[in-house]
């Protein structure tokens, strides 16, 4: 009996993921930031897209076809959505040579920044006390981002990241079996994404929208359109935006 504890713990760690039942979607705005539609130029950086399957044991299985489809569909959906953002959106042209290293570093830096916002401010688990206050959405990537090759002529940079692990048949079977027979909760599928806006003059993060349970099947054009609509929810200054839902704009709960 006692011999199995270690194995049980290890196996449990492999199969169960802790998904918070509340607060899986959050938007942050820099205090006092407004964006009048039709006034600025936004440069869209290359989205980070990863689509694959989730094995029975919870491991990520990359799928090249799905990722290519998603990249194509999301690209088209983002292009269509730009009209509804109320501002001019241009696509970032990847620099070659020396500038490419800087562009790569800024992409990695933005990912680190967005992860920090989600871990330390948005979602319960490890939030910093100073970041739980109402006006505490103060994050920056540094003002030198203005010298990044390819962003000259734009006022803001839009970064988009989305990650999908579609649960395999075995995973779904395990989920049903575990719930029915053993009474253990097993999650199936991971659909995370976030989008953020950086002010290129100051490097400040003026808006970030993160969602740990996104909808829309990015492998299809309709699903990609739905995904983009969710990613850009709460985008500042959208001209035809209906009042955003209370989930998106509520301040951090104590």
């Amino acid at each position: 009996m006692r011999r199995g504890w270690g194995a049980l713990a290890f196996a449990a760690a492999l199969t169960m993921t802790a998904t918070p039942l509340t607060a899986q979607e959050k938007t942050g705005n820099k205090p006092g930031f407004t964006l009048a539609p039709g006034t600025v130029t936004i440069v869209l950086m290359r989205p980070e897209i990863a689509v694959g399957a989730q094995s029975t044991g919870g491991a990520y299985e990359p799928n090249a076809d799905w990722t290519d489809q998603a990249r194509e569909n999301l690209g088209k959906a983002l292009a269509e959505a730009q009209g509804r953002l109320g501002n001019r959106v241009i696509t970032h042209v990847e620099p070659v040579g020396q500038g490419a290293a800087v562009a790569h570093e800024y992409r990695a830096l933005f990912t680190a920044l967005a992860d920090s916002v989600q871990t330390y401010q948005f979602f319960p688990g490890n939030r910093l006390p100073t970041k739980k206050r109402d006006d505490s959405f103060l994050w920056s990537i540094g003002s030198e981002v203005a010298s990044l090759p390819g962003v000259q002529g734009a006022d803001y940079a839009l970064f988009v990241t989305t990650e999908d692990h579609y649960g395999s048949t075995g995973r779904k079977l395990l989920q049903v079996f575990a719930a029915g027979v053993a009474g253990i909760g097993v999650s199936s599928g991971v659909h995370k994404g976030y989008a953020g806006l950086i002010d290129l003059k100051t490097g400040d993060l003026v808006w970030l929208n993160a969602d740990l349970a996104m909808g829309g099947d990015v492998r299809t054009p309709e699903g990609a359109a739905k995904r983009v609509a969710q990613l850009l929810e709460g985008f500042p200054g959208k001209p035809v935006e209906a009042p955003v839902t209370s989930v998106a704009t509520k301040t951090a709960a104590r």
Binding site: G6, A7, A11, L14, S55, G57
Partner: peptide
Amino acid sequence: RGRTIGDIIAWTSVISPYSTLPVSLI
């Protein structure tokens, strides 16, 4: 190999939680 082992361990943990099979597989 890692995927197969993970799958077996996932099923084992539900069917037979006190088994030492996961240790052998790892």
